[in-house]
Nucleic acid binder design. Structure first.
Length: 636
RNA sequence: GCCUCGAUAGCUCAGCCUGGUAGAGCGAACGCCUCGUAAGCGUUAGGUCGCGGGUUCAGAUCCCGCUCGAGGCUCCA
C-alpha cells in the first residue's frame, strides 16, 4: 500500500495544471479532523466520521483549474463508480497530491461543485483545510485503486489502474529454461520444437489457438461416471462425491498418505479454521489480501485454512526439538483446504474452492540438510505421480528461486533438473519476495493446453521465525528450522481431474478409456445368463471378493447384450458371463475389456492377474450394492 | 471481477426465429420375453417451460428486469 501511494504520487507530481485524483474502493474509512491547517479552513465541529463500503477520492485542485475541469473529474468518478458498483462517495481534499495548488477559496468552491454534481449517489466530503488523521481499509480487487489526472480537455484524461496486487508479486522475474545438462537459456532463445507442453507452460497466453467454447472433457466424465458433481446448495467450487467418486478419492488419499508415512512423515490433524488476529497470522496476512472464507463467530474473525501450514507450524511451536531430531516431518491430508478463488476461475475438479491437499512439512536444521531432504521428496513426488498413473510425459516442471540462491546451490538445482530428465521452466528473482527461496512444481498439461500444478515443494526460510519454531543446535543455541513444504501429489481432486483428462484423451484417439484397476469402483462384474445361475454367481462372487477384489452381480432382467454394454460403459475391466457352460467348468470365461475378447483361465490365475495389477495399492470393498437390481440410478 | 452463453419431464435435449392443446430418447414403474458377450418388446406415470413484470384475445416462444448456473478472460500466496 505504501509503495503504491509513493509510486503514484511521483507520477502525479510530474503533470501540471490539472485535477489530481487518487481513487480507492474501500471497505471502510474513519477520519478525525485534528486541527485547522489554514485560516480559511471550513468551519466545522471536529468529530470522527466512519463510512462503510465507500469510494474514497483523494483530490487536489491545482492552479488554473476551473468549473469544467471539476465537472470532468466528477463524470470520470461517476463512470468508474458505476463500473465497480458503488454508490457512496467521499471526496477527501488532499493537498499533498500537488505542489501547484489552487487558492484555497477556489479549491473549496470547486470541491463543493464536484460534490453537488452527484445527485444520484450518497456523497460527502471531509473538511477542507483541516489536518486529519485517518484509517482506511482498501479492497483487494483489481479496480479498487486507480489514479487519474483530469484536465480541461477530457481527451487528455489518463487513467492508471493499480498493479498493486500483482505488481508486488511480480517484481523482476527472469524467465529461463534450464536443461538437464545444467545450461540455462533465456526463454526467448530456447527451441521449443521438441517440448510442446513445456512451451504451453512457458507461455501461458495460449488463448489464441484454443477453441473457446469447449468445456474441459473431465467435467462431463465426472458426471457420467457418477464420480462427482457441483453442489448447487453449497458455494461454487465445493463438490459432492458420489459413492464411486468417494471410493476413488479415498483410495488415492490412502495411497498418498501411506507413501508419505513410508518416507517418514508423521500424520497429524489440525483445525480447519483459525483466528485471523492471532499474532502468528497477522504478519502472514499482511502480505496476502483477502482470498479466504471468513467467518464471524462471537466477535472472532475466523478464516478457513487455505493450507495445512498454520496448524502444523502452531503445533511444531510446542515441540521441544534438538538438532538430533531433525529433519522432522509432519504430515496432514487436509480435508479440506479452502481458497475463495474468483467465481469465474472455478472449473470442474481442476480448480476448486474446497479441496483435499496432502501437505508435508520437513523441519531442517540448516540449508544443507534442507537440500538433501528436498531431493528425497522430489523422488517421492515423482514416484507417487507415476504410481497414480501420471507419467513424466504428462507433466512439465517449473522451478523458481532467487538469483543468489541459484548461484550458491547450482549443483543441487542441476541435480533436480537432471532427475526430471527434461528441460524445465525457470523463474528467477533478483531478490526474495515470498517466504521461500526455492520452489519447484510439476504441472499437468491437459488436452486444452491448460497447465495445473500437481506436486510441489518449497524451501521456506521465514516461517520458522514467524511461528516461533525452535530447535537447539550443537552449541546449545536456539535456532529456527528451515521448513520444506511438500505436496507429493498435489490436490487429490486434481489427480482425479488428470486421470479423467487422460481418459478423455484416449476416447478422442479412439482408444478405450480405463481406470487403473486399483481405482476401479467395480473390478469384476458377474452376469448370470438366467435366474437359475444366481446361486452359483453369488458363491463365485464371494470366492473372488475373499481375495480383496471388488466384484458385483448384474442380476437385472435385461438382455445379455445390454448388460455387457452397460458394464463396458462403466469401464469395468473384467466381465464374467455365467451360463450352463461356466457353471459346470473348473475354469472361468472372462471378457477382458482391454481386448474385447473372451478367454478361459483358472480361478487362481485370474486372481493373481488382478493382484499383479493392484499390487502395493490400498484396497477397500465395494461402495455400492452388490446386486445391480438394488442400485438407484445417479442421474447427473 | 469482466465478457459470452445457458435455464423446458429424474437425465440429455427438441420446440422459440415465424405466438394458438407440452415433445423425443434415455431412465423409472408394471407386464411380456428367459436370452451366449456393446442397446429385446409393450403399457403407464412424470412438466407452474428458473423467478418477476410488460406487450397481446392468447406467451415456453416477443420485450424488460432479476436469480442461478456454465465456459472463457483476468487470477492462482
Amino acid at each position: 500500500m505504501i509503495g503504491f501511494l509513493t509510486k503514484h504520487l511521483i507520477q502525479l507530481l510530474m503533470e501540471p495544471q490539472i485535477v489530481r485524483i487518487l481513487q480507492l474502493h474501500c471497505d471502510n474509512i474513519e477520519y478525525t479532523p485534528t486541527k485547522k491547517e489554514i485560516k480559511t479552513a471550513e468551519d466545522i465541529v471536529p468529530e470522527t466520521k466512519r463510512l462503510e463500503e465507500v469510494v474514497v477520492v483523494f483530490v487536489a485542485i491545482e492552479n488554473g483549474d476551473d468549473s469544467s475541469v471539476a465537472q470532468n473529474a466528477a463524470s470520470q468518478i461517476r463512470n468508474s463508480m458505476q463500473k465497480i458498483g458503488s454508490n457512496r462517495l467521499l471526496l477527501y481534499p488532499y493537498a499533498h497530491l500537488s505542489s501547484n495548488l489552487a487558492a484555497p477559496s477556489t479549491a473549496l468552491s470547486l470541491l463543493k461543485e464536484m460534490e453537488s454534481s452527484f445527485s444520484d449517489i450518497e456523497v460527502s466530503h471531509s473538511p477542507f483545510g483541516w489536518t486529519k488523521s485517518y484509517k482506511i481499509q482498501v479492497k483487494g480487487h483489481p479496480l479498487a485503486e486507480s489514479s487519474k489526472v483530469v484536465t480541461k480537455d477530457s481527451e487528455a484524461e489518463k487513467e492508471i489502474t493499480s498493479e498493486a496486487l500483482k505488481g508486488e508479486s511480480k517484481i523482476k522475474s527472469y524467465w529461463k529454461i534450464l536443461t538437464p545438462d545444467g545450461t540455462m537459456t533465456d526463454i526467448s532463445d530456447f527451441d521449443f520444437s521438441n517440448h510442446k507442453k513445456l512451451e504451453v507452460l512457458a507461455k501461458y497466453e495460449y488463448a489464441k489457438k484454443r477453441s473457446v467454447d469447449e468445456p474441459p472433457p473431465h467435467v462431463a466424465l465426472m458426471k457420467k461416471m457418477a464420480i462427482a458433481d457441483y453442489e448447487p446448495a453449497s458455494d461454487s467450487g465445493n463438490m459432492r462425491f458420489f459413492p464411486n467418486g468417494r471410493l476413488i478419492k479415498s483410495l488415492i488419499e490412502r495411497y498418498v498418505t501411506d507413501r508419505v508415512k513410508e518416507y517418514g512423515g508423521y500424520e497429524v490433524e489440525t483445525p480447519i479454521m483459525y483466528d485471523s488476529h492471532h499474532p502468528s497470522m497477522v504478519s502472514y496476512f499482511n502480505r496476502f489480501p483477502a482470498r479466504q472464507y471468513n467467518i464471524d463467530s462471537e466477535g472472532k474473525k475466523l478464516f478457513l485454512r487455505f493450507a495445512a501450514c498454520f496448524g502444523q507450524f502452531l503445533m511444531a511451536n510446542e515441540f521441544q526439538m534438538s538438532y538430533k531430531n531433525l529433519p522432522y516431518r509432519l504430515y496432514e491430508l487436509t480435508r479440506y483446504s479452502f481458497r475463495r478463488e474468483q467465481s469465474g476461475e472455478l472449473v470442474g475438479l481442476r480448480r476448486l474452492r474446497a479441496f483435499t491437499m496432502p501437505d508435508c512439512h520437513a523441519f531442517c536444521k540448516d540449508l544443507k540438510q534442507a537440500m538433501d531432504e528436498i531431493k528425497v521428496r522430489f523422488d517421492l513426488s515423482q514416484s507417487v505421480l507415476h504410481e497414480l498413473g501420471i507419467e513424466e510425459s504428462d507433466y512439465e516442471m517449473a522451478i523458481r528461486f532467487t538469483e543468489d540462491f541459484y548461484n550458491d546451490n547450482k549443483s543441487s538445482i542441476d541435480e533436480l533438473v537432471k532427475k526430471h530428465g527434461k528441460p524445465v521452466l525457470v523463474e528467477m528473482w533478483k531478490e526474495k519476495f515470498f517466504y521461500f527461496v526455492l520452489k519447484w512444481e510439476f504441472n499437468y498439461v491437459d488436452n486444452l493446453g491448460k497447465a495445473s500444478a500437481l506436486s510441489t515443494d518449497q524451501i521456506d526460510v521465514e516461517n520458522g521465525n514467524r511461528y516461533g519454531i525452535e530447535f537447539i543446535d550443537e552449541n546449545n543455541e536456539h535456532r529456527h528450522p528451515i521448513i520444506l513444504h511438500n505436496s507429493p501429489s498435489g490436490a487429490i481432486e486434481r489427480i482425479i481431474y488428470a486421470t479423467l483428462e487422460k481418459a478423455a484423451k484416449d476416447i478422442k484417439e479412439g482408444k478405450k478409456p480405463q481406470y487403473p484397476l486399483w481405482l476401479a469402483p467395480t473390478q469384476v462384474r458377474i452376469i448370470p445368463l438366467k435366474e437359475e445361475f444366481y446361486d452359483f454367481c453369488n458363491t463365485l462372487s464371494d470366492q473372488i471378493s475373499a481375495h480383496d477384489v471388488r466384484v458385483d452381480i448384474d442380476d437385472r432382467n435385461e438382455s445379455i447384450g445390454k448388460r455387457i454394454r452397460e458394464a463396458e460403459k462403466e469401464w469395468i475391466q473384467y466381465i464374467l458371463v455365467i451360463g450352463d457352460k461356466e457353471a459346470h467348468s473348473t475354469n472361468l470365461s472372462i471378457r477382458d475389456r482391454k481386448t474385447g475378447n473372451v478367454r478361459d483361465i483358472s480361478f487362481d490365475d485370474f486372481v493373481s492377474e488382478i493382484k499383479t495389477q493392484t499390487n502395493g495399492k490400498p484396497y477397500t470393498g465395494l461402495n455400492l450394492p452388490k446386486y445391480l437390481s438394488k442400485r438407484p440410478q445417479i442421474m447427473v
